[in-house]
């Protein structure tokens, strides 16, 4: 009896440590190699005296259709601050509005199919006073999305930046 118990315990321990190993390696894989559910990209389109047009791309990297809330994101327009902007390492203040909208309804979420993208081109000079120099843009807003239940919103902190000379 005693021997059997010991064997069982050893087996249990093995199973446990294997599970722990799986958990750790999975955790590492998640944080290190897995692509984020929503990807983001910024690209300079045109630069002129009045316009500094940046194209923002949001991509659904998951295998599922997502419902994404455009509120406060680049894919809605200049209704909120979603960028950190600096010119020659000095912070440039956002001059646009910030809209308050309460709680979103189902209709406020828009379908973003698997691997599909939204693109939006916005003129930075509409809301930032930018002359010339070394310009850095960092997307800082989060995007709210759901798979089904809008009462269980998930947040994707987008990670994209752009550094250009203008």
């Amino acid at each position: 009896m005693f021997r059997l118990n010991k064997k069982l315990n050893t087996q249990k321990r093995k199973v446990l440590s294997f599970a722990l190993f799986l958990f750790i390696s999975n955790g590492c894989a998640n944080s290190m190699t897995q692509t984020p559910p929503l990807g983001c990209n910024m690209q300079l389109v045109t630069a002129s005296a009045n316009a500094l047009n940046i194209e923002f791309t949001l991509t659904n990297n998951t295998d599922k259709t997502l419902k994404v809330l455009p509120w406060g994101t680049a894919w809605e327009g200049w209704f909120n601050r979603f960028l950190d902007v600096s010119l020659n390492k000095e912070k440039v203040e956002y001059q646009g509005p910030m809209m308050k909208r309460g709680s979103p309804n189902v209709a406020d979420f828009k379908i973003l199919a698997t691997k599909a993208s939204w693109k939006a081109t916005l003129n930075l000079r509409d809301v930032y006073a930018i002359n010339s120099g070394d310009l850095t843009l960092q997307y800082k807003g989060a995007v709210t999305y759901v798979e089904n239940d809008i009462n269980a919103p998930q947040l994707a902190f987008l990670d994209c930046a752009l550094n250009i000379q203008i």
Binding site: L69, W71, G72, N80, R81, F82, M98, M99, K100, R101, G102, S103, P104, K140, G141, A142, T144, N151, A152, P153, Q154, L155, F157
Partner: peptide
């Protein structure tokens, strides 16, 4: 402040996942 998450459920989820935000 910024508008990072919307509505009570959004704000609760933000507090859970990212108190810094």
């Amino acid at each position: 402040t910024d508008d990072i998450a919307y509505g009570q459920s959004g704000a609760k989820s933000l507090a859970n996942s990212s108190p810094y935000s």
